[in-house]
């Protein structure tokens, strides 16, 4: 069992937790993920490591409450335990030899972008952060990004906060004005990453994307997380989760992520109803 040591809501639907898992905390690096199971009989879900405290043995996870399992996880409080927590899985993000980096985060993807940006900063790179959200009320990690960024841009789709538009608006402006990056790291919804890659391509700047497909074991056993990169089949869990964005078939990745949409919606509703009953 793995105990929850801290818990905090970052906005209405995004929750941050520190889980006591000393072996994972000792090893995890930016870009890697863990797989957890809330309770016996539950689903295994992958979540990217948002930070670690090796001394305290804590692993930080940030998740959006989108389905039945994340709903159940959110019902757990400080002092409660979850049954399984395994990692770190996947390969760490490659940050070596990058002097000028641009980190682009979208929505809850900012939770994954944050440790990458911090790792880049710690390695001595000049970091430009561009983070985007749908609306003001779901903005997360703004202060954290500001603190470690040499340049910081924030957008909202509806213009309720920061600059109006998606992340490609400031990115395109920067690139058009001649700003050179060694690498762009895009982490967020598939559609966002697809457009960031298209923008990066226009200016011939390498773009790394962090893929988040459906997974089961996370160790290369099931092949569920496969995606096409430059026409070749890759497994996100062992070959990734980071890939060269130029080669990723985003359309395939998008339909694959929708495979169980109907089932997930139904389960979510059942779980919500269950908790409502308990509250009553």
């Amino acid at each position: 069992m793995f105990q929850i040591v801290n818990k905090k809501m970052l906005n209405n639907t995004v929750c941050e937790m520190d889980v006591l898992a000393p072996m994972v905390a000792k090893k995890a690096r930016a870009g890697q993920f863990i797989i957890l199971r809330v309770d016996e009989g539950g689903e295994r879900i992958p979540l990217t490591v948002a930070g670690c405290d090796e001394n305290e043995g804590l692993v930080k996870i940030i998740f959006q409450i989108v389905g039945s399992t994340t709903e159940k996880l959110n019902q757990k409080n400080v002092g409660d335990s979850i049954s399984d927590f395994v990692g770190p899985l996947g390969n760490p993000t490659e940050i070596e030899n990058v002097k000028n980096a641009c980190v682009v985060g979208g929505g809850v993807g900012c939770a994954i972008a944050m440790p990458v940006a911090r790792a880049l900063k710690n390695s001595g790179a000049n970091v430009t952060s561009v983070i985007g959200f749908r609306s003001k009320d779901i903005v997360i990690l703004e202060d954290e990004f500001k603190e470690i960024s040499n340049n910081f841009y924030l957008t909202t789709d509806d213009g309720t906060y920061g600059e109006q538009g998606n992340v490609c608006v400031p990115l395109e402006r920067l690139l058009a004005s001649g700003t050179k990056f060694d690498k762009i790291y895009a982490i967020g919804p598939l559609i966002m990453m697809k457009f960031v890659v298209a923008t990066a391509k226009k200016y011939n700047i390498p773009c790394i994307v962090s893929m988040n497909p459906i997974m089961i074991d996370g160790t290369g056993m099931c092949g569920c997380c496969r995606l096409s990169v430059n026409g070749k089949m890759k497994f996100a869990c062992v070959d990734g989760p980071d890939f060269d964005g130029y080669g990723v078939d985003f359309d395939e990745a998008m339909w694959r992520n929708n495979m169980y949409k109907e089932f997930e919606a139904k389960k979510r509703e059942e779980t919500c109803n269950l908790f409502k009953k308990e509250v009553r």
């Binding site: 056993m221 099931c222 089949m233 694959r256 929708n258």
Partner: peptide, 14 residues
């Protein structure tokens, strides 16, 4: 093979 509904036997059995 990337279509939805294509499984490895490992995934299906798992």
């Amino acid at each position: 093979e990337g279509l939805n509904g294509v499984y490895s036997a490992n995934e299906f059995l798992t």
